[in-house]
Computed example of a mutant assay.
Amino acid sequence: MSHTAQIPSHRKPRRSTPRVTLRAGVAGGVLSTIAVAGAAAPANAEPVTETIEMPTLTAGLAGDFARSADATQRVANTLDLQAQQDAAAAKAAKTAKTAKAEAERKAEAKRKAEEARVKAAKAAEAAERASRSTERTALASTSNSDSGSSTGSSSSSSSNTVSETTSQATGSAASVVAFAQAQVGDAYIMGSTGPNAWDCSGLVQAAFSQIGVDLPRVSQDQSVAGTQVSLDNLQPGDILYWGGAGSAYHTAIYIGGGEFIGAQNPSKGVVKASLDYDPPSGAVRVL
Rank of each mutant, 00 (worst) to 15 (best):
I261T: 03
R67G: 14
S131P: 10
Q84M: 01
L234I: 09
L31H: 15
R67K: 14
G237S: 07
T251W: 11
S209E: 09
I7N: 01
G194C: 02
K91M: 04
Q228K: 10
S158K: 11
Y277T: 13
A87H: 05
R136S: 15
A273C: 09
P280W: 14
A5C: 03
V36K: 08
A5V: 13
K119W: 11
S156W: 07
E128P: 00
L287V: 01
Q73A: 06
L275I: 05
A71E: 04
A130F: 09
V118N: 06
A76H: 03
D232I: 00
R117Y: 03
A83I: 01
S192W: 00
A107Y: 04
Q210F: 02
A90C: 09
Q168H: 04
S159W: 12
T165F: 01
A37W: 12
G60K: 04
A121L: 11
A62C: 02
P8W: 07
L81V: 01
A182C: 00
M190S: 08
A180T: 13
A39T: 12
A169S: 15
A89R: 04
E125C: 06
S141A: 13
S281P: 10
G185M: 10
Q205I: 07
D64L: 08
R136I: 15
Q210V: 07
W198C: 08
N44A: 14
S68V: 02
T4V: 01
S281T: 15
S230V: 05
V229R: 12
K100R: 11
K272T: 03
A248E: 03
G28L: 12
L231R: 05
T49G: 05
Y277K: 09
A178H: 03
N144K: 07
T58V: 02
L287E: 05
G212P: 10
V213N: 07
G244H: 11
G25I: 09
T78R: 04
D70V: 01
Y188S: 05
E46V: 04
S153H: 09
S201P: 11
V229M: 06
T51Y: 06
Q6D: 03
E125D: 15
K97T: 10
L234D: 07
N77I: 09
G237T: 05
A123Y: 12
A96M: 02
S141I: 02
S2P: 02
I239V: 05
S149Y: 08
K268W: 04
G148D: 13
K272Q: 14
E128N: 12
K268N: 06
A39E: 13
A83C: 00
K106F: 06
S209G: 13
P8I: 08
A88C: 01
S172K: 05
N160H: 13
T227I: 05
P216A: 10
T193Y: 01
S145D: 14
K112V: 15
T166N: 11
M1T: 12
E46Y: 02
L22F: 15
K91C: 00
A62G: 09
D278E: 05
T170R: 09
Q228D: 04
T49W: 05
I261E: 08
A182M: 00
A71T: 02
V229D: 14
A169Q: 03
G282H: 10
D64Q: 08
P216D: 07
H3Y: 08
Q84W: 00
E50G: 01
S154W: 01
G256K: 13
T227G: 08
P280R: 13
T142M: 13
T98G: 11
D221F: 00
I211T: 06
L275S: 06
T251I: 12
V176G: 00
G243A: 12
